[in-house]
Design a protein around this nucleic acid. Structure first.
Lengths: 242, 242
DNA sequence: CTCGCTCACTTGTATTATGCTTGTCTACAT
DNA sequence: ATGTAGACAAGCATAATACAAGTGAGCGAG
C-alpha cells in the first residue's frame, strides 16, 4: 500500500507551474491555494517551505510568496567583484598604479562630474601577472585631495571615499586600442578592446566618479541574462551614438 | 494564477506611456493620476517612486513629476525593442536578408543548441538607410522548415516560431570586423565591432535560438544601469575567457 | 515697467484605519 | 508521521485625510 504524501504532491505541482513563471511572479495566497488544492493552509505551507528550501520561491510576511530572483550572478556594482571572481578561480589578482595626478578635467569628464579640477588615477589590473584591464578613474579634486597613491593601490576607490552610493550608469562599447593602453595590456595597437564608461552617483543623485575601463577583447567579455518576464528593474539597452 | 499588486501594474502602465515621451515631459499631478487609475494618491506615489528609483522620472516639490533627462533606456527583453527605439526617434528601421540557408551546424552552435542541422539566416539591419547591425540567427532545422525567406524579412524571428520564450543569455564582447561583416556594415576590415552572442531558451529551459549580433563600434554601445542598492535583479557580469 | 503679494496647485509627509497575507502557535484527528 | 482546524500577532497594500512647504501665474501697488 503506497501512501502519497499530500504536501509533496502539491510541492511538485507548484514546481511544475512555477517553472514557467519568471522571477517576481507573485503566487496566490496560502488561503487561496489551500482552497484550490482542497487541503489545509498548514499543508500548503509545508509544500511552499519545501520550495523555499530549494531556492525556488521566497516569501515576505504580509506580502506573499513569489518566484525567487534568478541566481545572483556577479554584480557589476563593484569592479572588485571581478578580482574576487579571479581569486575564486585561484588566479592571483594584482593592481598597479600607473598614474596619480591632479589635472584639469577633460571636456567629457567635466560634462558629467561638473567640476574643473579632478584627480586622475590610472591603474593596470593583472591576473596571474598578465594584464587584463586598464582603469582610469576621475574624481573631483575636493573629494580626492586626502588620498594618496598608496591608498588607491590598496583598496577600491568606492571604499576610500566613504560616500553612500546609489548606483552607476555604464556604457559598454568597443574600440581600438590606443598606443598607451596597448602597451600596458601588451596587445597590438588598434586591436579591439571593450571600453566601459561608468558614472557613479551618490544617493543624493550627484555624480561623483567617472571611470573608463579598457579590456582586451580576446580575454574578456560581458555576460548578461535577459529575464524577458518582467522588465522590473533591468534597464539595460543598446543605443546608437551619434 | 497571478496575484496583481496594483502599484506595480500602475508603474508598468506609466513606464509604457513614458517610453514614448521625451525628457522634460511633465506628468499629470498625483491627484489626477489617482483619479485616472481609480486608486489613492498613496498608491500612485509608490508607483512613481518606483520609477524614480529606476531613474525614469524625477520630481520637484510644488512643480510635479517629469521624465528624467537621462536617456530613456530600453529593456533588452525583446530584440525588436532596438528597432522600436529607432522608430520612436523618427529613424526608419529596415531589414535586409543576406542569407537564408539550411546548413550543418558549426561546432559552437551544435554545442549550444544540440542539433546538427540548422537554418542559418543572416540579416543586415539598417537605420535610415545606413547599416548598423549584422545579425546571424541559427535555429534548429525542424523549427525553421516552414519558414520562408520573406517571413524572416517581415517580422522578428521570435514571433515567427510561436514559442513561449523564457529569456536569453547574452555575451557581449569586442572583436575586429571580418571581411564579410565589414563589407556589409561599410566599415574597414579589422575595425572594432561589438559582438553579442545570444542563446534564447523556451520556458521549458530548452535553448532554441542562437544568434550573433555584430555592431560597428563607432555607432553603437550598450548602456547598463547598476542599481547597487538592490542586488536583486542585476544579472550582469564580466568574465574572462580562456 | 518692476516689486511684492496672494492664491491655486503641486509634491512631501504625516496619521489613522481596514482588509489581506504570512509567521507561529496550540489542539486534535487519522 | 501526517494532516486538519482554529486563533493570534506582525507585516503589507491601500484608502482617506490632513497639513506643511515649494512653484508659478496673476494681480495690484508703486
Amino acid at each position: 500500500m503506497m501512501r502519497t504524501i499530500r504536501y509533496q504532491e502539491i510541492a511538485q505541482t507548484l514546481r511544475d507551474q512555477l517553472r514557467a513563471e519568471g522571477p517576481g511572479h507573485v503566487l496566490p495566497s496560502e488561503s487561496d491555494l489551500s482552497a484550490q488544492f482542497d487541503v489545509s493552509r498548514v499543508t500548503v505551507r509545508r509544500a511552499l517551505e519545501m520550495l523555499r528550501d530549494e531556492g525556488l520561491v521566497e516569501s515576505r510576511q504580509g506580502f506573499g510568496w513569489y518566484v525567487a530572483t534568478a541566481p545572483v550572478q556577479q554584480s557589476l556594482s563593484h569592479l572588485d567583484t571581478i578580482e574576487g571572481q579571479l581569486s575564486d578561480r585561484g588566479v592571483r589578482p594584482e593592481r598597479q598604479i600607473v598614474e596619480f595626478a591632479f589635472v584639469d578635467a577633460p571636456e567629457r569628464v567635466r560634462a558629467r562630474l561638473g567640476c574643473d579640477h579632478v584627480l586622475r588615477v590610472k591603474r593596470l589590473n593583472l591576473a596571474d601577472g598578465e594584464p587584463f584591464a586598464v582603469v582610469t578613474v576621475w574624481c573631483p579634486a575636493e573629494l580626492g585631495e586626502h588620498l594618496s597613491r598608496r591608498d588607491v593601490e590598496r583598496q577600491p576607490f568606492y571604499e576610500l571615499l566613504g560616500l553612500e552610493l546609489r548606483g552607476a550608469s555604464q556604457i559598454i562599447g568597443a574600440a581600438a586600442a590606443d598606443e598607451a593602453d596597448a602597451a600596458l595590456l601588451e596587445i597590438p595597437v588598434d586591436s579591439p578592446v571593450l571600453r566601459c564608461e561608468r558614472v557613479t552617483t551618490t544617493v543624493a543623485g550627484q555624480p561623483v566618479l567617472m571611470s573608463e575601463h579598457i579590456f582586451p577583447a580576446h580575454r574578456t567579455e560581458f555576460t548578461v541574462e535577459l529575464p524577458l518576464a518582467e522588465p522590473s528593474i533591468v534597464p539595460s539597452g543598446l543605443r546608437l551614438v551619434e
